[in-house]
Amino acid sequence: MKGLLCKDLTEMLSPVNLIPAAVAMLAGMILKLPYLFACIALFIAVMPADSMRRDAVSRWETQQMMLPVSRFCIVTEKYLLTLICAAAAVLLTGLGMLWIAPAYQLDSEELLLWVMRACLCCLLIPALVCPVSFRFGYDKGRGILFLLIVFFAVVTASELAVPETEFGTVYAKLLSSISLSSMTLRDILRILLHGGSYKMILISVFCTLILTFVSWLLSLWGFCRREF
């Protein structure tokens, strides 16, 4: 597994990936824009899925089967990578928000909410993309990734949509009309974007961790049945 992790980290830490992240981080710190840190978190969240894309394109997917590693190790390595990415996102978002906290008069609870949202984003994307990619190949997983990116775009749009404008009102009504149990989609988006309450975000992160565990089990089940 050490070799697989070494391969993924070497690829991820290549200048192609590092330069945009470093530029976004610096810009976020200089311009003091919290959303730039959210972008970095999203960028890092996509990295494990992107490493699966690279594996499929370069045929490493097949080549890694020739290494002395079990299928269990191959799947587990990607989830370990996900956790490393989540930790990196938490660290970068935390540091960034701490830097700009005085400008926005953010208290510690708000800071924590931003960090948790970064963590949530980094765990949620691979948790949903990996099982499909491991079972059916990245081509199928890419569809899920696309839907997730659209979802996060909707979340961002909900933030940008001003309720006073016509578009904002229609958009807010539309979101409010879609309800899941007792909460509307707008409530859920608000929790994801604004934090809602500290407890709700904590529960979301806990649920996402469970989802990640279930996703790992599903990926193992799917990959062990996959034929090349």
């Binding site: 391969k7 370069s58 080549q63």
Partner: peptide, 19 residues
């Protein structure tokens, strides 16, 4: 099928950790 953006030395490091 080896990682496309890596050099021989980087690929060797991966193999060294694997075998």
């Amino acid at each position: 099928g080896l990682p496309e953006n890596l050099h021989i030395r980087q690929i060797e490091k991966i193999m060294k950790y694997s075998f």
